[in-house]
C-alpha cells in the first residue's frame, strides 16, 4: 500500500476559506443559509465554514447535521455504518441548504442526503460543498463548491483527516500495490 499526501493543513485551510467566500458570493451574503454537514466528517467541516463566514460577515449561520443511514440504496449489499442522529433543529422551508461533505465520489450519498432533506421540508435551493472531488460519478450530481479536484482510480482510497476527529488536518490517497 502506498500512501501519498494530497492536501496539507495549510492547503485545506485555504480551500475552506475560498469555499466560504464562494458560498457568500453565490448567495449574496449569509442570509437565509443553513449549512448541513453529513456524518461524520462533513459535520466538523460545516462548523469550520460557519466560523469563517461569521468572521467575514459578522453573522452566525445555522448548522445542522445529517445521517443518511436510513436513505441508502445499497443497504443489502454493504454493511451499514452505525447511525448518528440527524440534528436539524431549524425550519428548512424556503431556506438555502448547503450540504457539506468531505469526499464526493459516486454521488449516491448525496442522492440519499437530498432524499433525507426532502423529508424534513422544502428548501428553496440545495447546494453542495465538498473538500475533495475524486470523480467516478454514478449519478448526474455535481458539487457547487469544490476544495480540490483529485483524479483517482477506483482502486484508490481517499481519506480526509480532520483535527476534530483524527487529531490532524490532511488528505491522503492510498493505492494498493499490485
Amino acid at each position: 500500500m502506498s500512501v501519498k499526501k494530497i492536501q496539507t493543513d495549510v492547503q485545506m485551510k485555504r480551500a475552506l476559506t475560498r469555499i466560504s467566500h464562494e458560498i457568500l458570493e453565490r448567495n449574496s451574503g449569509a442570509k437565509n443559509l443553513i449549512l448541513v454537514g453529513m456524518h461524520s466528517r462533513g459535520v466538523p467541516l460545516a462548523f469550520r465554514i460557519r466560523k469563517l463566514i461569521s468572521s467575514y460577515e459578522g453573522q452566525t449561520v445555522d448548522v445542522g447535521s445529517l445521517d443518511i443511514g436510513l436513505y441508502r440504496d445499497d443497504i443489502s449489499e454493504k454493511p451499514q455504518a452505525t447511525m448518528k442522529p440527524t440534528d436539524i433543529s431549524v425550519d428548512i422551508n424556503e431556506r438555502i441548504v448547503v450540504l457539506v461533505d468531505d469526499v464526493l465520489y459516486t454521488g449516491r450519498s448525496i442522492r440519499a442526503a437530498m432524499d433525507a432533506i426532502k423529508d424534513l421540508g422544502r428548501p428553496s435551493q440545495i447546494q453542495l460543498a465538498v473538500l475533495i472531488d475524486r470523480g467516478h460519478r454514478e449519478l448526474p450530481i455535481r458539487a457547487d463548491y469544490v476544495g480540490k479536484n483529485v483524479p483517482t482510480s477506483k482502486e484508490e482510497d481517499v481519506k480526509v483527516k480532520l483535527a476534530e476527529v483524527d487529531g490532524l488536518d490532511e488528505v491522503v490517497i492510498s493505492s494498493p500495490i499490485t
Binding site: A81, T82, D102, V103, D157, V158, K159
Partner: peptide, 9 residues
C-alpha cells in the same frame, strides 16, 4: 461520504 471509514462492527 468517505468510502474508507475504519472497519468497525
Amino acid at each position: 461520504m468517505t468510502t474508507n471509514e475504519p472497519n468497525t462492527r
